[in-house]
Design a protein around this nucleic acid. Structure first.
Lengths: 157, 157
DNA sequence: GGGCTGGTACTCGGATAAGTTGTGTCCGAGTGCTTCTGG
DNA sequence: CCAGAAGCACTCGGACACAACTTATCCGAGTACCAGCCC
C-alpha cells in the first residue's frame, strides 16, 4: 500500500505551474525540486496524457496548465500519475476452492469488496474536495513574499 | 497504489474464523480459498504478530481469533497485513533544491501532505467503522444456511 | 486398570528464491528562435 | 533596410535497463496426541 513517489513531485509542479505565465521546462522543475530530470519528465508526460498540462515544444518551450488551477483537483493529479484503479481488487474468493459458490448465486457483491469500495470512495472524495488552486493559495499565504519573488526570478533566469 | 493481495485472503480467513470454535489449520484455510498454502501461512503469521489471531501448535492445532469478531475492525486486518504506514510520505520537497526553505521557517506543515493525510484518515475511518462481526453477519444473512453447514462440515473433515 | 513415558505426526515460524511493478535512464523526433544572405 | 530561408539549439516523446517490493516456497523448531509399558 504505497503510492508512487512521483505523485508528490507532480503536485508540487502543478502548484508551481499555477503561478507561472510562461512555459516552464521540465529540467527547471527538476532542478528546483532536486529530482531526477528524466524521471520527472516521465511524470509530466503522464500529466500531459491526462490532459492536465500542455507541452510547448521549441527552444523556449516547457509545460503549462491547460485549465485554471481551481478546476484541477488533487485527485486528478493522483489518478494521472498513480492510475485510477482502486487499491483493492476483489478476486471473488467465494467462487473458488472446494466450497465454491456458483456464480449465478452470487447476486449480492462480496461484503468485503463493498467495504473496500466504500473506503476508496471516501478517500477519493477527500482528494476531490481540494484543488491545486486551494493548495497554491495556502502556499502563498504561508510563505514570505520575498521567497515567492526569488523563486519566480530564478525561474526566469 | 496497490494493496497487498493477501489482505483479501486475510479478511476471508478472519470472517471464517469468527464462526469457528476449534482451531483451523492454515492448510485447510488455503485449500478452502484456493490459495498458496505457504503464502497464506505467511499472512496468518502477520495476523498472529499483530495479535489478532492466536496459533495453537500441535496435532490438532491451527488458528483462532483472540478477540470477539465484533471487536476486530477491518482496519486492524488491513494494517496487520499491509502495514500501518500511510500511502503518502512527504519528503519535504520545500527544503530541497536551490530555492530550499530553511527547516526553521517550515513551521506549518506542507499543505500537500496535509491533504494526503486528511484523505488517509478518511480512508482509515471508513475501514475502522466495519468489524469482522459485521461482515460475518452479512455473509450469514446472504448465504443459504445449507451452504454454511456444508462449509463447517468440510472444516471438520 | 491407571499412570507415565517415549515416539510420532502434525502444527507453526523464520529464513530463503522468482516474478512483477515501480524507478531511473537514454536517445531520437519535432519545433521555435536565430542568423545569415539576397533583394 | 527588410524579407525569406536555412541552420541550430532546445524542447518533448517513447523505448530501454536497474532496483525494490510483493509473491511464492522451502525446511527447521516446537508441541499436542497416541501407543506402549510399567506399576
Amino acid at each position: 500500500m504505497k503510492m508512487s513517489g512521483g505523485v508528490e513531485w507532480a503536485l508540487h509542479c502543478c502548484v508551481l505551474l499555477s503561478a507561472a505565465t510562461e512555459p516552464v521546462a521540465a529540467a527547471k522543475l527538476a532542478e528546483l525540486h532536486d529530482a531526477s530530470p528524466t524521471y520527472l519528465a516521465k511524470q509530466l508526460q503522464l500529466l500531459s496524457r491526462a490532459g492536465l498540462v500542455r507541452s510547448a515544444p521549441g527552444q523556449s518551450g516547457g509545460y503549462l496548465l491547460t485549465r485554471p488551477a481551481t478546476e484541477i483537483t488533487v485527485l486528478d493529479v493522483v489518478e494521472a500519475i498513480d492510475g485510477s484503479q482502486p487499491a483493492f481488487r476483489c478476486t471473488e474468493v467465494r467462487q473458488r476452492g472446494p466450497m465454491a459458490i456458483p456464480a449465478e448465486r452470487c447476486d449480492t457483491p462480496c461484503p468485503i469488496a463493498q467495504v473496500m469500495e466504500s473506503a476508496d470512495h471516501a478517500w477519493r472524495d477527500s482528494l476531490r474536495a481540494v484543488t491545486i488552486g486551494t493548495l497554491a493559495a495556502t502556499v502563498t499565504a504561508t510563505t514570505p513574499s520575498e521567497l515567492l519573488n526569488s523563486v519566480s526570478a530564478w525561474l526566469s533566469s
